[in-house]
Amino acid sequence: MSAGSQYTLYHPKWYRRRVSVWWWLQKGSYATFVLRELTSVFVAFFALVTLWQVRAVVRGPEAYAHVLARLKSPLFLALHGVAFLFVLFHAVTWFNLAPKAMVLRLGGKRVPDWVVAGLNYVAWLVLSGGVAWVVLRG
């Protein structure tokens, strides 16, 4: 290999059978995979809604009331209903993959997968309760 050669992520000259853009609809597990990846769109959506809300709170009572009215519109209620399902799907798949992504060892033995996943679910419950407590106290 010459010093100038570069690693490329794809090889345009290889023969490849054309795959339809809809390849992920051919099998249930493919569709689940793509749905899981698409949860990120709803994650970004809610991050932006949060930013929008914070900016309204900083701007004043009128701006905030305007945002609250918009959140009550059918469009936003529908978006949030769908987004909630996708975010739940993200959470569950994320916690179930945690033992695979992060292998914990205690005393030379691997901590069983269900313990690692279980700890994630416990943290989820505790933090959700904490969020509700802080927000509803106000």
């Binding site: 994650v43 809610f46 991050a47 809604v49 949060t50 809300q53 959140l71 936003f76 209620l77 978006l79 949030h80 209903g81 987004a83 909630f84 975010v87 739940l88 993200h90 959470a91 994320w94 916690f95 994630n120 943290a123 989820w124 933090l127 959700s128 969020v131 509700a132 927000v135 509803l136």
Partner: peptide, 13 residues
Amino acid sequence: AALLFPAHLFLTG
């Protein structure tokens, strides 16, 4: 997002 978004989204959304 996994730990905190469901609670926040459920409440505000």
